[in-house]
């Protein structure tokens, strides 16, 4: 689903964010990516979302080579990827339901159909009944779960998460990971950036370790 072949990313400032990184994540595989801040985790995720272009090597997502992707096709790539962010990235002036419905609205879904899917997605993350509330009225953990609901509502093939448990207590973190596992079990590929080592160890999934832009560790398909 996601393949990196000797991918390097150098910013205009000269900073080397990624250096000859290669790995592949299969359909239905869940993997963590870890490393200190500045190790290149965010750059890696941005490359997958085509928010940045690699300087060298090729990034292949969902069968398409992103270096050859035309600019106007970028939105359609992103519609097949659900993204979860550390700072939630919710629209504060829209209700929870409207936030979750955003990807469906963009794809031009029928409203009735969209409502059904939004309810299902909120149900999955344990937020049934909060549809009409605004993000500001929710706790940080709840907001994060709204973000997850938005990421999965369009039934994406890939879910990317950037520090999804960054602000959450261990109990909530475990809950959210359990939600992610559910999606893995239905064939979604997940790549989760996190520096929560204890959580990663607890989960026992494949882990990619980045250090100063280099992939220094890959536990392989650790899932037994």
């Amino acid at each position: 689903m996601i393949r990196f072949d000797n991918v390097s990313k150098q910013y205009v400032s000269g900073q080397n964010a990624l250096n000859a990184v290669s790995f592949e994540i299969a359909k239905g595989e869940m993997a963590f990516i870890t490393g200190h801040s500045g190790a290149g985790k965010s750059s890696l995720l941005k490359l997958i979302l085509a928010a940045e272009k690699s300087t060298a090597g090729s990034v292949i997502v969902n069968g398409s080579d992103l270096s050859k992707l035309r600019k106007r096709d970028v939105p359609f790539l992103r519609r097949r990827i659900g993204s979860v962010f550390q700072d939630h990235q919710l629209l504060q002036d829209r209700t929870v339901a409207d936030n979750v419905a955003l990807p469906l609205d963009i794809s031009g879904f029928d409203r009735r159909d969209a409502q059904r899917r939004v309810r299902a997605a909120l149900d999955k993350v344990g937020l049934s009944g909060k549809e009409k509330q605004y993000p500001a009225a929710l706790s940080s953990g709840e907001q994060q779960r709204v973000g997850i609901a938005r990421a999965v509502v369009n039934r994406p093939a890939i879910i990317l998460a950037d520090e999804p448990t960054g602000n959450l207590d261990p109990e909530l973190s475990a809950e959210i990971m359990a939600v992610f596992e559910q999606f893995k079990n239905v064939g979604v590929s997940l790549l989760i950036a996190s520096h929560d080592i204890s959580l990663i160890n607890q989960m026992d999934y494949r882990t990619l370790v980045l250090k100063e832009g280099q992939l220094i560790g890959d536990t392989g398909r650790g899932e037994s």
Binding site: L49, A51, R72, P75, F76, L77, R78, R79, I81, S83, Q89, L90, L91, D93, L102, P103, I106, S107, R150
Partner: peptide
């Protein structure tokens, strides 16, 4: 910010 988020979830320029 709103536009950035919409872009991230796949909104086209015309949308």
């Amino acid at each position: 910010d709103e536009i950035r988020i919409i872009k991230l979830v796949g909104g086209t320029h015309s949308y």
